[in-house]
C-alpha cells in the first residue's frame, strides 16, 4: 500500500514507540505490583503516556480529555474506592489469585493472536500525520454537526449512571418493599 520503509524510523515514530513503551511498562506494573495504591499511581503514568501517544497521533483534543477525565477523575475515583474499602496500604501478598498461571497463558495467547493478526493485516498501512486534524475545533464541529444524537443519548446515560451510583452507595435508601 505504502512504499515507506520501517527503517529508519522517523522521529515521530521513535517518540511514539518510547511513549508506548512507557504505557505498556506501566500497565504491566499496574497488573503486577503488590501495593494497591501503587497500582493506581502506575495507572496514572500509563494514562499519561497514552495521552502523549494521542498527541503524537495529532488527536490533541482526545489527549486533553484523556488527561482530564482519566487521570483527573477516574484514577481519583479509584483511589477513593481503595480508601473506602479499607484496603491495606503498603505491601500485601494476596493481591493475585491462584488463577495467575492460567491467566498469564490466556493473556499471552491473546497477545500472540492479536499481534500476529494486526501485523499480518496492517504491515503496509501508513498514516500521513497532518497536524490540526484532531483539534478541538474540528472535533467540536464534528460532534455537534454529525454526532448530536449519540451525544445527547450519552448525556442521558451519564445522568442515569450518576443516579445509579448514588442509589447504590447510599445506605439510607432501601428498595421497595
Amino acid at each position: 500500500m505504502s512504499a515507506v520503509d520501517f527503517w529508519p524510523p522517523s522521529t515521530l515514530e521513535i517518540v511514539f514507540l518510547l511513549l508506548g513503551l512507557v504505557a505498556v511498562g506501566s500497565a504491566l506494573l499496574v497488573v503486577t505490583t503488590r501495593q494497591l495504591v501503587h497500582a493506581a499511581l502506575w495507572l496514572v503514568l500509563c494514562f499519561g503516556a497514552l495521552a502523549g501517544c494521542y498527541l503524537v497521533l495529532t488527536a490533541e483534543f482526545v489527549a486533553w480529555v484523556q488527561v482530564l477525565i482519566y487521570v483527573g477523575a477516574v484514577v481519583v475515583l479509584l483511589l477513593f474506592g481503595i480508601m473506602l474499602t479499607r484496603a491495606p496500604i503498603g505491601r500485601s501478598d494476596d493481591l493475585d489469585s491462584g488463577n495467575r498461571v492460567v491467566a498469564a497463558v490466556v493473556a499471552l495467547a491473546t497477545a500472540g493472536v492479536l499481534v500476529s493478526v494486526v501485523v499480518g493485516g496492517f504491515q503496509h498501512a501508513y498514516a500521513d500525520l497532518r497536524p490540526g486534524s484532531g483539534s478541538a475545533e474540528e472535533l467540536g464541529g464534528s460532534i455537534f454537526r454529525n454526532w448530536v444524537l449519540p451525544f445527547e443519548a450519552l448525556s442521558v446515560l451519564l445522568l442515569a449512571a450518576l443516579i445509579g451510583a448514588i442509589v447504590l452507595s447510599r445506605t439510607d435508601i432501601s428498595g421497595r418493599r
Binding site: S97, N99, V102, A103, V106, A109, T110, V113
Partner: peptide, 22 residues
C-alpha cells in the same frame, strides 16, 4: 462460583475459536 475462572474459560474459548477461524 469464581467468576474469574469463568471469564478465563470464556476467553480461552474465544481465542480457540479465533485461532481455529484463522
Amino acid at each position: 462460583g469464581n467468576a474469574q475462572l469463568y471469564v478465563t474459560g470464556l476467553l480461552a474459548g474465544v481465542l480457540l475459536i479465533a485461532v481455529g477461524a484463522v
